[in-house]
């Protein structure tokens, strides 16, 4: 047998042909996280038209209804806030806002940072220096401080919030893709493209970009959790969004004044934030683990046998 034939293949089947799915099925945490996020996105997309009015309706007779009872209907199972609005529904409305903000902020910053990084790394020279200085500036100011300053000046709105979050996160992608471009630029396949007369934009698009895309993708996944938290922080401080736009951070802030009497107004939205950010982090951790040849083995078989695990 040649060397490659010494690999004993396992029986064929659906899961064998889709290794990623197979690994996912062996990892309950990652599965649960994907399920949660999908659920959240679906709810966020579908529910608002139906429950929007319910969620915002102030029913003063139902102020501070405690949670865990179904006396007032399913929507009050997580209690009500100071104006009698059902927590469960508000959280669902907040889901739409939070996910939208997170998605766009990450997408915009990732794509922009990636593109600028590739251009900067490829051309070098003064353009590169200038862009790096700008990235440094953005990186030096703590994001919250910068966001505070920006949103102080501009009016709070979803668009501005997304914008600020996106801008503060660009340096991360910029640096990464620039570093990779600098390295890839010297590689032979790029040289040969150049020798064949390919224009710069083509080289960047066809040769360089696809090679650094996976890293950016991994980075973006990692960032989703961070962005969700950052957006919530801004809303909590009262400078991210204004009603009627509702977001989880804002809900937590609402409950602050009534912490000792109506803890559920603060606690439940926070729990949802934790679960969502955790789901995003678990998935990004899993994505990194399966790309590592040693770790990925453990997702194929359920548990390594004793004899295999030496110190």
């Amino acid at each position: 047998m040649s060397n490659t034939e010494r690999i004993v293949r396992e029986e064929d089947g659906f899961l064998t042909r889709h290794p990623k799915l197979r690994m996912l099925s062996n990892s309950p945490l990652a599965m649960a996280s994907v399920v949660w996020l999908v659920l959240l996105v679906l709810t966020g997309l579908i529910a608002p038209p139906f429950i929007g009015d319910e969620a915002n309706r102030q029913v003063l007779s139902l102020r501070f209804v405690p949670p865990f009872t179904l006396d007032h209907g399913f929507e009050y199972v997580l209690g009500a806030d100071s104006l009698g609005r059902p927590m469960l529904l508000q959280i669902i409305m907040g889901a739409r806002t939070s996910m939208t903000v997170a998605f766009f902020a990450v997408a915009i910053s990732a794509l922009t940072g990636f593109a600028i990084g590739v251009v900067s790394g490829y051309f070098g020279g003064w353009l590169d220096q200038a862009l790096m200085r700008i990235a440094d500036i953005l990186h030096t100011i703590p994001s919250l401080l910068l966001a505070l300053a920006v949103l102080y000046v501009l009016e709070p709105s979803i668009v501005n919030l997304i914008g600020v979050l996106a801008v503060t996160r660009i340096p991360l992608y910029l640096r990464t893709s620039r570093a990779q471009t600098l390295e890839l630029r010297e590689r032979v396949f790029v040289e040969s493209s150049r020798a064949m007369g390919a224009p710069a934009w083509r080289i960047m698009l066809r040769d360089i970009a696809p090679m650094s895309l996976p890293t950016i993708r991994t980075l973006a996944m990692l960032e989703v959790g961070t962005v969700i938290l950052a957006a919530a922080s801004l809303s909590f401080l009262g400078i991210g969004l204004q009603r009627p736009d509702v977001d989880w951070g804002m809900l937590v802030a609402d409950g602050r004044a009534y912490l000792s009497s109506a803890w559920w107004v603060t606690v439940f939205p926070g729990v949802v934030i934790v679960i969502t950010a955790l789901a995003a982090n678990i998935i990004s951790n899993w994505l990194r683990a399966i790309e590592d040849p040693v770790q990925s083995v453990l997702f194929i078989r359920k548990r390594p046998r004793e004899s295999e695990v030496t110190a």
Binding site: R6, I7, V8, R9, E10, P19, P293, S296, V297, I300, R301, P304, E308
Partner: peptide, 10 residues
């Protein structure tokens, strides 16, 4: 060795 593709008889 146990790898993603299967068992390798090294």
């Amino acid at each position: 060795f146990h790898t993603v593709q299967g068992r390798v008889e090294a």
